[in-house]
């Protein structure tokens, strides 16, 4: 079973993290995502963290590593929906997440991946 449900829209993967992840689960998610991106020729990944009340340095690193790995696999990752309190805390913690693409919400994330609209069939254009 997958660590987290991955929703495929065209050649974009959408993941919404709805529960607190413990470390091992976060690492499994990282592995599975990389495999899926490689196997299925994914072009973009959107990780929605708007439900997360905290992101600590461990999860921050996992997100950063996912972005770096997918980039090697020729896909782009956008992390969307980080809450203000989480962002302030990460800055204080000293985690800058350089090179990580971010967007306010899923729509803005899709736009950043160059997808303007979605067909009824779910095909991304």
């Amino acid at each position: 079973m997958n660590a987290l449900p991955l929703l495929r829209i065209g050649d974009v993967l959408l993941v919404s993290i709805q529960t607190e992840l413990h470390d091992e689960l976060a690492l499994r998610f990282q592995r599975e995502l990389a495999e899926k991106v490689a196997d299925e020729h994914i072009r973009g990944v959107i990780i929605d963290i708007s439900a997360l009340e905290i992101v600590d340095s461990f999860l921050g690193r996992v997100l950063h590593d996912i972005a770096a790995t997918t980039s090697v696999l020729a896909a782009r990752t956008v992390v969307v929906g980080m809450r203000p309190a989480v962002a302030i805390t990460l800055v204080e913690l000293g985690l800058s997440l350089h090179g990580l693409r971010t967007a306010l919400n899923v729509e803005a994330g899709l736009r950043q991946l160059g997808i303007r609209r979605l067909d009824v069939s779910g095909e991304a254009r």
């Binding site: 470390d23 009340e53 905290i54 992101v55 600590d56 340095s57 461990f58 809450r83 203000p84 309190a85 989480v86 302030i88 805390t89 204080e92 913690l93």
Partner: peptide, 17 residues
């Protein structure tokens, strides 16, 4: 406050690990 609470829980997570 929400921000303080987030800092508190994040600190706890770091130190527990």
């Amino acid at each position: 406050s929400l921000v303080e609470q987030t800092k508190l829980v994040t600190a706890a997570s770091e130190l527990a690990r």
